[in-house]
């Protein structure tokens, strides 16, 4: 069991010191996850705040059979950040320099291969056509909506929707 998973068990038992320890252990990574989506420190702080409130209330729902504690935490922060992005109408500059001109270089994906699951996902993503892969990463990591991805990849909106859907289907088969 990872440190984070052990702390979640204690948080489920209403141990506030465990929540603080978890914050200390994970907040730098999780703030980064929120920043990648919101690209605004105040908004990202709101997302981490909202996410941790959720963690405190839902810790008992963490199921170690369904993934790592780190992944579970990241998913809660991501959804909190995505909710904030949606409330803002996703009026987020997508020409932000931090996104780079080619945000999803294949080599960049090598960085997710530390875990076995990451290595498998990397291999399956590599089999996707480039723009399908880029669409999936822009949505997941940077919180871009279908229209934002279409603008960024210079593709029609319908094409982007169909490609992402097909890409996800292919990923599922590949990872099965």
């Amino acid at each position: 069991m990872s440190d984070a998973a052990a702390l979640l068990l204690r948080i489920a038992g209403e141990d506030r010191t465990a929540l603080q320890a978890l914050y200390k252990l994970q907040s730098v990574r999780l703030f980064g996850v929120a920043m990648a989506i919101l690209r605004d420190r105040d908004a990202a702080a709101d997302a981490v705040h909202d996410g941790f409130v959720n963690v405190a209330r839902r810790a008992a729902q963490f199921d170690a059979e369904r993934g790592t504690a780190e992944g579970w935490l990241g998913s809660i922060i991501r959804h909190a950040a995505l909710d904030i992005a949606r409330r803002r109408g996703r009026e987020i500059p997508t020409d932000d320099a931090t996104l780079g001109d080619t945000p999803v270089e294949a080599a960049q994906l090598d960085s997710i291969t530390a875990s076995e699951e990451g290595a498998r996902l990397r291999a399956c993503l590599a089999d996707l056509p480039e723009k399908n892969r880029q669409g999936i990463v822009l949505a997941f990591v940077h919180g871009l909506s279908h229209p934002q991805i279409a603008a960024r990849l210079e593709l029609p909106l319908g094409t982007v929707k169909a490609w992402i859907r097909r890409g996800l289907l292919t990923l599922r088969e590949c990872l099965a």
Binding site: S27, F31, A45, V48, G67, T68, G71, I112, L121
Partner: peptide, 26 residues
């Protein structure tokens, strides 16, 4: 199932220290 499948992509975000007062606010 999808949360688990896509979770490794979280690693593509660059870690960054949150504002120092965030824990107190929480």
């Amino acid at each position: 199932g999808w949360e688990q499948r896509l979770a490794p992509l979280q690693l593509l975000a660059t870690p960054e220290a949150p504002p120092p007062d965030l824990w107190a606010r929480l």
